[in-house]
Amino acid sequence: MDQAYEQAAELIAGADALLVCAGAGIGVDSGLPDFRGTEGFWRAYPPYERLGLKFEEIADPVHFADDPELAWGFYGHRLHLYRSTVPHEGFEILRSWGARVFTSNVDGQFQRAGFTDVAEVHGSIHHVQCVEPCTDEIWECSFDVSVDPVSMRAVGPLPSCPSCGGLARPNILMFGDWGWVPHRSQAQLDSLTSWRRSVQNLVVIEIGAGTAVPTVRRQAELASASTGSLIRINVREPEVRHGRGVSLPVGALEALRTLARRTA
C-alpha cells in the first residue's frame, strides 16, 4: 500500500492537469448512502423494503405520471438530504489541486464544495424540468418538498412547470428515461471534452465508481488510456485492468488525506 501511495503521489505532483471521475462512493464519508445493491438501498430507505421497491424501480420516470406523490417523496427526501450535507475534507483537497470533475452523482456536492467546472453526466437534483416535457427549459430547484417519513410520499403541493402548469420533475437521467432534457449536462460534457483536448500530462483520479453502472469507470479509463495515469480509489472494486494505473483500496477521505500529506 505504501508503494501505491508513493506512485499516486508522484503522478499527482507531476501532473499538468487533474481530472476527478467520481461515483457515489465519494459521498460516503460525508454520510451519504451509495445505494450499492438492493440491500444497501433498503438500509438507507427502509420504507421501500416494505413496499418491495428497488432503487432502479423507484428511480423511474414512470412514477411521475402514475404516482407523483411516490416519485416526489423519494426525490424530495434526497433533495433535502443533499442540501443539508456538508462535503467532507477530501473535496477541498481535490479543489486545492485545481481538478476538473466528471461525475455520475446528481447531489451537487462538488458545487457545494466550491467547484465550478463539473460535468454531471446524469443531471442534477438541484434543477428541474417539465415531466412531458412541454419545453426543453431547465430551471433551478428553489422549492422544498414535504415528505411523510413513514410512507415516504410527498405531501402538499407538488412542483409544477411554469410553462404549462403541469408536473415538474428533477432534471435527472433516470432508468428507462426518454423524457430527460439533456442540454445542460451536454454543455458541461462539451466543455470538459474541449478542456481535455487542450491539456497535456493529464492524471485521472477515479473515486468511488463501481462496475454496476460503469459510466464513470469508462470515462476514467478512456481519459487515461494513452498514459495509464489512473489512480483508482475504491474500497470494494479497486482492481486496475492490465496494470494500467494505481489501485488504492480505501475510502475517499482516507486516501485523499494521505495523498495530500505526501504531495505537500
Rank of each mutant, 00 (worst) to 15 (best):
F102E: 03
C161D: 01
T116A: 09
G208P: 11
M152S: 09
V150N: 13
S124F: 01
E140K: 13
V204F: 10
C164H: 01
H122V: 00
L202Q: 14
Q129Y: 03
Q109L: 15
W97E: 10
F110G: 07
L192S: 02
E206I: 12
T103S: 07
H126L: 03
D177R: 06
P133M: 05
A119R: 01
H88T: 11
I172G: 03
Q219D: 02
N105I: 07
G114V: 05
A220V: 11
R153D: 09
Q186V: 11
H127L: 09
F143V: 14
L189M: 15
S151H: 08
R100Q: 13
G208F: 06
L158P: 02
P159T: 04
P87H: 12
P157T: 11
D148V: 02
I125P: 04
C130M: 02
D177I: 02
F102W: 14
D148Q: 09
G98K: 04
R184T: 02
I172K: 02
S160G: 13
P170M: 05
E89K: 05
G176D: 12
S146A: 15
L189A: 10
V86K: 14
V131W: 11
W180F: 14
E89I: 04
E120I: 01
G179K: 06
F110S: 05
E92S: 15
T135M: 00
P214Y: 08
W195L: 09
V106T: 09
L158G: 07
V147F: 08
L192I: 01
T211N: 10
E92G: 15
P159R: 03
W195T: 08
A168D: 01
I138D: 01
P170F: 04
E221N: 10
C141Q: 15
A119T: 04
C130E: 03
Q129P: 00
L192M: 11
S142N: 14
H122L: 07
L167R: 14
R95C: 06
S198D: 12
L158A: 07
S142I: 05
Q186E: 14
R169K: 14
P162S: 07
G123Y: 02
V86M: 12
W195P: 12
V145C: 10
L81G: 02
V145T: 09
V204I: 06
A113W: 05
D144F: 12
G176Q: 04
V101Y: 03
P157W: 00
G90Y: 10
V204H: 07
G108I: 03
S146N: 13
Q111W: 00
V121T: 09
N105C: 14
L222H: 12
P157V: 04
M152I: 00
R95S: 11
R95A: 11
H122Y: 05
T103Y: 04
D144V: 10
R83Q: 14
D190Y: 02
L202F: 13
P182N: 06
A168P: 05
P170A: 04
P214Q: 04
G165Y: 08
D177M: 03
G114A: 09
G176F: 13
L202S: 13
G114Q: 09
F91G: 08
A209H: 05
D107W: 08
S84Y: 00
V86Y: 00
F102Q: 02
